[in-house]
Design a protein around this nucleic acid. Structure first.
Length: 424
RNA sequence: CGGGGCGUAGCGCAGUUGGUAGCGCAUCUGGUUUGGGACCAGAGGGCCGCUGGUUCGAGUCCAGUCGCCCCGACCA
């Protein structure tokens, strides 16, 4: 990953105005700051700053998936009907979000909205014996869903990257064990992304093979989900299963819960043998008997998570990125046209870059201080360092945290130590 | 998919009873500025979403259509 950027070379620009019909805060802030661009309703492009943030989110998720023995793959989006017919999900009545097209020869083709079927089919080529199990595969891959109504900026789009991991085990115990590992990994991920304190693991509707699935719901007034929280017992329940029967299973009453709006940022689900039965994914056990593989699926939407972070981490001036996913750690602001300012700024820029501090340098010569500060607040890097003649005279750098607080004046020779402590 | 709103320069908007399109921001040139989105002077930029109709004449009136946003329904 590139660690440095001069703002004069950054092709995107910030904007003072917005398309009037952009209402969601995440799209307003991300469009204004030049992180993303809207192509059509429900389809956004990621520009240099936005792409960096998205990749940082992806990398954190990747590290945690690798830590629970996930093997990264990438499946194709192009899907033939035959793969989906065994589960009856080619039918538009059953799966109403298909984008369908056809080949030159007239054969039908769909753009995958999810990947259980093709991956189950793929695994038939590699899973034969109990010795091949358990196995875990995941990908960061583009999903296409023909939503009737795209909305809420990058929170609900028709094309989006999804991290989907699938587990393949010998039996329910394999599945249950891995499910708990995945749940713990998800908790860690949202913690590292800066959403830990406001993200709840909720009980959600299950399916044929288990009573509940779990969702990771981040509290947010702009969210489209409703969850019910009991802080005492650390229980949260999705609206769709918040019924008297289920509430009583937890030994609680309706009034023991607080209703909150939230955004679904992750979902883990026990699939059981639904797909392995339908597509014929079996293994031979030690005693020679054949069994269907027991599966689970585990999803996170990195772009939706990015939008959620913007929705929850901002002030009236712009975005306040958590340090782990900020596009750059430090934003250097050079004030004044003097040669010494430019030279001293460049010295600092090179020093930080050489020490792996990701740095954006506002080196634009003819931009007024007010505009530079406003841009810096909007873009939202965690640390701003102002280089001006006033500070240079005192051999200091002026440092300000985007999250708040007053500026601090750090002796020049201490700047690396200060940043190392600040960014650890 | 139902309901509502909106399409005029890159963005925000104005456009009178129908008479041949304008303002601010942004951009370009020159100059003056430089600690919280500067100022002056000049310049470029338009299929008025699209198609059809009414009319001597349509950004404006009528019909259709496409697109965008919001609410709802839907949403492993």
């Amino acid at each position: 990953m590139w660690h440095k950027m001069k703002q004069s070379k950054l092709f995107t620009k910030t904007s003072k105005t917005l398309p009037k019909d952009e209402v969601s805060l995440n799209s307003q802030l991300l469009l204004k700051s030049g992180f993303i661009d809207k192509e059509i309703a429900g389809a956004y492009s990621f520009l240099p700053l936005g792409h960096r943030v998205l990749n940082k989110i992806i990398n954190i998720i990747r590290e945690e998936m690798n830590a629970i023995d996930g093997q990264e793959i990438m499946l194709t989006s192009l899907q033939a009907p035959a793969t989906w017919e065994p589960t009856d999900r080619w039918d538009d009545e059953k799966m109403d979000v298909w984008f369908k097209t056809e080949l030159k020869n007239g054969n039908q083709l769909g753009l995958a909205p999810t990947h259980e079927e093709p991956l189950t089919k793929l695994m038939k080529k590699f899973i034969n014996s109990y010795k091949d199990l358990p196995v875990f595969a995941y990908q960061f891959q583009t999903k296409f869903r023909n939503e009737t109504r795209a909305k809420s900026g990058i929170l609900r789009t028709r094309e989006f990257i999804m991290k989907d991991l699938y587990s393949f085990g010998r039996n329910q115990q394999d599945l249950d064990e891995y499910y708990e590992r995945a749940k713990a990994a998800y908790v860690k991920i949202f913690d590292r992304l800066g959403l830990g304190k406001i993200t709840y693991v909720t009980f959600a509707s299950g399916g044929t093979f288990c009573k509940f699935s779990h969702e990771f719901q981040t509290l947010c007034e702009y969210g489209e989900d409703l969850i019910y929280i009991n802080e005492e017992k650390k229980i949260a329940i999705n609206r769709e299963i918040f019924t008297d029967d289920i509430i009583s299973e937890f030994g609680l009453k309706r009034e023991d819960f607080v209703e909150k709006k939230s955004i679904e940022v992750g979902n883990i689900f026990k699939l059981g043998t639904k797909f392995s039965d339908a597509l014929g994914l079996h293994y031979v056990a030690e005693n020679g008997e054949r069994f269907p593989v027991v599966m689970g699926s585990y999803g996170i939407g990195p772009a939706r998570t990015m939008g959620t972070i913007v929705e929850t981490c901002n002030d009236e001036k712009g975005i306040i990125w958590p340090k782990n996913i900020a596009p750059y750690h430090v934003h250097i602001i050079s004030l004044g046209k003097e040669d010494t300012i430019a030279a001293e700024s460049e010295k600092l820029y090179n020093l930080l870059c050489a020490n792996n501090v990701e740095t954006l340098w506002d080196d634009r010569p003819n931009v007024n201080p007010g505009a530079k500060f406003a841009d810096s607040d909007l873009i939202g890097c965690p640390i701003r360092i102002t280089v001006s003649s006033k500070n240079l005279e005192n051999k200091q750098y002026e440092v300000k945290r985007r999250a708040g607080g007053n500026a601090e004046f750090i002796p020049q020779e201490n700047i690396l130590a200060f940043l190392a402590n600040e960014l650890k």
